[in-house]
Design a protein around this nucleic acid. Structure first.
Lengths: 257, 257
DNA sequence: TATCATTGTGTTGAAAATACGCATTAAAAT
DNA sequence: ATTTTAATGCGTATTTTCAACACAATGATA
């Protein structure tokens, strides 16, 4: 059985080359059709979903490990990635037994014992451009795809809690840092940007005040082009001024909140 | 040599009963004489200082492990404790070699190898009442005492960075949560509270506006007593209304910022 | 060419944050 | 005992920010 062999090799690799007791979980946010989405994986031979994750190599910085996992699941690099919390409860595996879940992979009991032991997990959230990502499952999973944030099912482990906290952190971050650089295409309209903010915050904002504030921060460049094709008045296209955008990120200027 | 024996036992205990690869570091803030203080430990037989820390038992929640370490260093429980960041760089041991530092303990080379390997460390910060704490060193350290926040020396490992980030997080927290419950004595004056805020924020605030805002949040109860003894007009004593204080913590109402 | 929904810009009023005035007070100085 | 001093308690203006709303401009559609 080719798969079992590969799995064996993977387990051996994990045991020897990666830090024990610590794992990484990723809440990857995308934005499409006015909806905030999260990338989920379906556990092999089950109908249960979970967050993508990874582990840290012995000679690898933790953040680099998170970026690596992100790249493996989406094909993207150069992405906004932010650590938001580390989860260390013993009973992080409430909804479904971790032992049972892992046994579905067809692991021998000896490996299960070690593998199913308790981990501390560092949570990161990422903001990626929906269109550019190529969702790719890993060896533990059959399927990888986007889910609407308000239609997430009951997930494996404590992953529902992770998404909730990631979103809460993201919303708070919105109040002191700009957002959108990795979520929107290079050129976008003001309504696009506003819809992004509204989706993340879960509330509608006044169109005119929003525009005023955004322009006031000096992180946007208005292009001469307009977005044609849609009905009615054609809106201007904007682009982020990367320099000012990153300065705003550093300085943590107050934003919409 | 009794100490070597005890150290051996400790190392064995750590290897068998605690999670490998993960440690906890604590930035314990106190407030005294108008100064923000941090609790530091002096590494055995050296003049180098570091943050207190600990490890997680296999069947112990991570937060419980942090509380346990906090209790061991200060004698205090029931304390404000908050996770602020997890540090996972490979070269977290820049200023001083981790191998050399650990060898000062008199460890045999075999233990050193395993023990000096790279850890991921979860950082917590705590706010404690200065007067109530009893600083206590551990087996790795000779001395445990408070340092003024602006007189911290070059510390072992990446502990200077940890303090910087903890303080940054604390300052940010101040903008959406009340503070002081575990930093001030039971009864305190408005100037006491203001001085605490000013010290943490590193800037002076208008006395009258500060009072107005604080009273407006409804987390303070003014007592009939006044604080006598000092020169000039005697200020009222206040006490936190625990119920409202904790409600404000939960609701994350906006505060001074 | 008129219609329509949406965009771009400006104005106004309320609310909040900030700056500042002054009488009161308790210890210290005279 | 009286005056002085410096800090407290409470109050009022001023400025700034935020939220609500009005209206002209635009470009595809009918």
């Amino acid at each position: 059985m080719e798969y079992q062999k590969e799995l064996k090799r993977l387990i051996f690799d994990l045991k020897t080359n990666y830090l024990p007791s610590v794992s990484i979980d990723l809440v990857i946010f995308g934005f499409h059709d006015g909806q905030l989405k999260v990338l989920l994986l379906r556990w092999k031979t089950t109908d249960k979903w979970c967050l993508p994750g990874g582990r840290i190599r012995h000679e690898e910085n933790m953040e680099a490990a998170a970026y690596r996992s992100l790249r493996e699941r989406t094909g993207l690099s150069e992405i906004f990635l932010q650590q938001f919390h580390t989860f260390g409860d013993v009973d992080r595996y409430t909804h479904f037994s971790r032992h049972d879940t892992l046994s579905k992979l067809g692991l021998p009991e000896e490996d299960l014992k070690e593998f199913a032991s308790r981990d501390v997990s560092v949570g990161y959230y990422a903001l990626v451009e929906f269109a550019g990502a190529t969702p790719t499952p890993d060896l533990f999973t059959d399927e990888c795809c986007w889910w609407d944030i308000d239609q997430i099912p009951l997930l494996l482990f404590d992953h529902n809690d992770m998404i909730t906290l990631a979103l809460k952190t993201l919303r708070r971050q919105l109040s002191y840092q700009p957002i959108g650089y990795n979520l929107l295409p290079d050129k976008f309209t003001m309504p696009d940007l506003q819809q992004l903010y509204e989706t993340i915050l879960g509330q509608s904002l006044d169109r005119r005040n929003f525009q005023k504030r955004m322009l006031g921060y000096g992180i946007l460049e208005r292009l001469e082009e307009r977005k044609t094709g849609g009905a009615h008045k054609a809106p201007y296209l904007y682009r982020f001024n990367k320099e000012n955008y990153e300065k705003a990120l550093r300085d943590e200027i107050l934003f919409v909140g």
